[in-house]
Structures are given as structure tokens and as C-alpha cells.
Nucleic acid binder design. Structure first.
Length: 420
RNA sequence: GGAGAAUUCGCCUAGUGGCCUAUGGCGCACGCUUGGAAAGCGUGUUGAGUGAAAGCUCUCAGGGGUUCGAAUCCCCUAUUCUCCGCCA
């Protein structure tokens, strides 16, 4: 949720942000008007309530014979107060409805426009030249007997798979490498619940335009999370935290996504699947530290890509392609040889105070006053990385060289080869 | 799944319809005292909304209700604990 004070004092900033996202600018004016009428109704109600409170004391103190008359008057006052209260509540609810629709204010410098309008930040590593025809990860996975898509589909339907043998170990190796890196950097590991209550899903902002992406269990009124960000953002909801240095968590969880509306996209292999594992970084920090923290998260992500010896590029995602909570987002995309293009492996978002305001997560400033915290998140490893690792490190004989950083987690294995 | 008990300010706790505008302690902060410290004494110590401010309003797990008036009575929900049942 956006900051009401900003809405009142500097609505042009919000209008400009909505414009650069291609979102509805008129919401800002609606919100301003609703805020005005809400305050007016609230003052009316509070004045009546104050009168009623005074009256209550008079009734209590009055001699018996006067009570009857006073109570009659008080009844009438109580009725009016109740009505005013209902009006003020309704106005507040209307305002909230509109406020929830306004997206986070994008940070200055974020490119305007849609998916294609990103800005390239940098390109790192060398795209490998193959002197043979490279195979795609699904082929490699099948031939090496480490990814079994056919049986995944048999058991659970399209976009499901088994990771098998070295494939299973490779995923765990990558996740542990990421966890160790995060731990060394001071992150607290958290293995999170993957089923959450509607209020948490709502609070993290995932029930908006992306609600069709989410699995829901009606019998239990619970949602399956598409990222541990949901649980990590909810972790300190309603709390006033101690934040000196950023408070950092590394969330390990399985993630579930319906991939509704992506029929026909990335149908082969494990690039786009309904269930995968992910190690997610999450930071709570002071708003003034958020941009610096965002750079740090990005740097940690790049470190991981480098440890996996993958060529990649970093892009500054355009405003129209940001989630509603993000004020800026960097994607790190790895080169996928068989597709001849970069594909997103990680994404890091600076949600500034937008997400924390909804979830009521605060910290105390130097004066001891509670203030809304800033939240940031970023991927450190996910199942999708296997695509890039397999394809980029494949050899002519169909084997795959294991990046040196992962070997200690695989009992020193240097190369994944097909069974004889 | 069934039965019962509980939920008050960071923690513990008082509180059975109006003098609760919530008690007391611990902790914490500031001050006095002291050569310095401890002890002692004093003051402060939930948070939100609204207003230029004084102030006003809300906040006793959450939501609804009864009442002129609710921490207190009623209903619903959540959580915790105890017992019973079932179960990997």
C-alpha cells in the first residue's frame, strides 16, 4: 500500500509513477477525494462520540430521579453516533479499496514502458561457442537419466517432472551452495511453510492481478505459495522490529505455480513448471538503506551465477513489467545456448515500504518512533538453474561438467555421464 | 474429532456493567542521591487515527451483539494449555 502522507502532500509523484507503469492515473484522484471525505466523516463521528462519552458520565453521576430523562436523550445521541460511525467506516473501506489498487511508486531512473523496454545493466561472461550441435536440457536430462519428464507427466500431468540420481543431487548441491553463501553473508536460514492463510496472501499482494497463478485449497481455506517470499514477508507482520543492520533471511521452500495463461510457452523441459525449489533472500531494512541493500542482493545473486560459471546479463526491468509491490526490479538472466537467448534465472525486487505497510511491519527510528520498514527479496537459486547449468556445461559426448563450486556438494563429482 | 480452561501494555499480573481516563511488579529510559557504582527515591514507559495546535477518538486476542454506558454480559472466529479419541 502506498503512503497516505505522500498521497496528500505529493500526489504528482504517484501520478507519474502510475503513468510510467501504464497503470490507471485516475486512481490517485479518486483516492484523494475518498481520503478527504473519510476524514470529514471521521471528524463528525468523533465529535458525536465525545459528546456521548460526556453524557455517559452525566448519567452515571445523576441522581435517580433525573436518570430517566437523561437516558432518553442519550439513546437518541447513541443512535446518531452509531450511524456516523457506520458512515465513517464505509468511507474508510472505500478508500482502502482504491489504495490497494495503486501500485508502488517506482524509483527514479527505472525505465518506463513494458516488457521490451528494460535497460541492460551489464553483460558478464563469455557465451560459449559450440563446435557441435548442443542439446537442450530436456534431452540431456533424459539421456543422462537425471530428469524424468515422461513419468512426471504420468504421475501429475504436464509441467511436472522427477529429478533423479545426479539430477536430484545436483539440485540439492546448488541449493546448499546458495544456503552456505547466504549463511556466510549473515542470512538466517528459514525453512518456511508453503501453505498460508488468505490474510497473508492478501497482505503480500499476490491476490491481485496474479491470483490466477496461485493454487488454492478450498477445503482448508489455504493457499500454496509460489515463493517463500510470502512466508518471509509475513514472518514479522504486525511486529515492531529491531533494525540496525538489515535483518536478512534465506528462505528454503518448494514453490507452486499454476502457470495459467502460459499454455504453449516453454512446454519442453523444466524451464516453466508447476513445482520447484527455491532459495530466496529476504531483507528487512530502513527505507533509506533499501537501494543500497538492493545492490547487495543483486551482487550476491551474481556471485552465485559466477560460481555456477554461467554467462549472464543484468537488466533493469521497466516500470510496466514490475509487480505491483516492486519499486524497482533487476533480473539476472543466464544464456541458454539452445534458445539463443537470455532467460531469467533470478529476480530481485525492492518493495520499499509498500509491502511492509500492508503487513504492518515496522521498526523504531532514532527517536524511538515506529516507522514502516522496507522489504526486499531476491532469488539465490532455483530448480530452473539446472537448465542453464546443463546446457552451458555439456560436452560433445553428452556428459556435463560440474562447475567447481558445486563439486564439494556432490562428493567431488567432476562430470555427470550417462550410465553405460 | 470431542470436552474443559485460558488470552489484559516488552514480560508477569489486578480487574465480575459507570470513580478503568486500566492496577501493581519486573524490565527499560531519564533524573536525584554518590568520589564512582549498587541500593534507594522520583518521573516516564502500547500503539493508531484526526487536528495548525490544545485536544479529541480508538486500542484489554480478532469480529459482531446487548446497553445511555462493556476489559467486565451474549454470540462467532483464532490461538494456547489440559484431558479423551484417532493416527504416521
Amino acid at each position: 500500500m502506498i503512503d497516505l502522507t505522500l498521497l496528500r502532500e505529493n500526489p504528482d509523484v504517484i501520478r507519474a509513477s502510475q503513468r510510467s507503469r501504464g497503470a490507471d492515473e485516475s486512481l490517485v484522484d479518486q483516492a484523494i477525494e475518498l481520503d478527504r471525505s473519510r476524514r470529514e466523516l471521521l471528524q463528525k463521528f468523533e465529535a458525536l462520540r465525545a459528546e456521548q462519552n460526556v453524557f455517559g458520565k452525566q448519567v452515571a453521576a445523576a441522581p435517580k430521579e433525573e436518570k430517566k430523562a437523561l437516558v432518553d436523550q442519550a439513546q437518541e445521541l447513541a443512535a446518531r453516533t452509531k450511524e456516523a460511525s457506520a458512515e465513517a467506516d464505509a468511507a474508510g473501506a472505500k478508500l482502502n479499496e482504491v489504495l490497494f489498487k495503486i501500485d508502488n511508486v517506482v524509483i527514479e531512473g527505472v525505465p518506463s514502458g513494458g516488457e521490451e523496454d528494460f535497460v541492460l545493466v551489464r553483460e558478464v561472461g563469455h557465451k560459449r561457442e559450440f563446435d557441435f550441435e548442443p542439446k537442450d536440457h530436456a534431452q540431456l536430462g533424459e539421456q543422462l537419466d537425471i530428469i524424468d519428464i515422461e513419468r512426471g507427466v504420468k504421475i501429475s500431468g504436464s509441467r511436472f517432472y522427477f529429478l533423479k540420481g545426479w539430477g536430484a543431487r545436483l539440485e540439492l548441491a546448488m541449493m546448499q551452495l546458495a544456503l552456505d553463501q547466504a549463511f556466510a553473508a549473515g542470512f538466517t536460514p528459514l525453512i518456511t511453510p508453503t501453505l498460508v492463510k488468505p490474510s497473508v496472501m492478501q497482505g503480500t499482494g499476490f491476490l491481485g492481478e496474479h491470483s490466477s497463478e496461485i493454487y488454492y485449497l478450498p477445503n482448508d481455506d489455504l493457499y500454496l505459495t509460489g515463493t517463500s517470499e510470502v512466508a518471509l514477508a509475513g514472518y514479522h507482520s504486525g511486529e515492531i522490529m529491531e533494525i540496525d543492520e538489515p535483518v536478512r533471511y534465506a528462505g528454503w521452500s518448494t514453490c507452486y505455480r499454476r502457470e495459467a495463461g502460459s499454455h504453449g510457452k516453454d512446454v519442453t523441459g523444466i524451464l516453466r513448471v508447476h513445482q520447484f525449489n527455491k532459495l530466496e533472500m529476504f531483507s528487512y531494512c530502513k527505507p533509506e538503506d533499501a537501494e543500497a541493500e538492493h545492490e547487495r542482493l543483486l551482487a550476491w545473486q551474481e556471485q552465485m551465477l559466477q560460481k555456477c560459471e554461467l554467462p549472464y546479463r543484468v537488466i533493469d526491468v521497466a516500470a510496466g513489467d514490475l509487480g505491483s509491490s516492486a519499486a524497482r526490479k533487476f533480473d539476472v538472466e543466464a544464456w541458454v545456448p539452445t534458445q539463443g537467448k537470455y532467460r531469467e534465472l533470478t529476480s530481485t525486487s525492492n518493495c520499499t515500504t509498500y509491502q511492509a505497510r500492508r503487513l504492518n511491519t515496522r521498526y523504531r527510528d532514532e527517536n524511538g518512533k515506529p516507522q514502516t520498514a522496507a522489504t526486499l527479496n531476491g532469488t539465490l537459486a532455483t530448480t530452473r538453474w539446472l537448465v542453464a547449468i546443463l546446457e552451458n556445461h555439456q560436452q560433445e559426448d553428452g556428459s556435463v561438467l560440474v562447475p567447481a563450486a558445486l563439486r564439494p556438494y556432490l562428493g567431488g563429482l567432476e562430470r555427470i555421464t550417462a550410465k553405460a
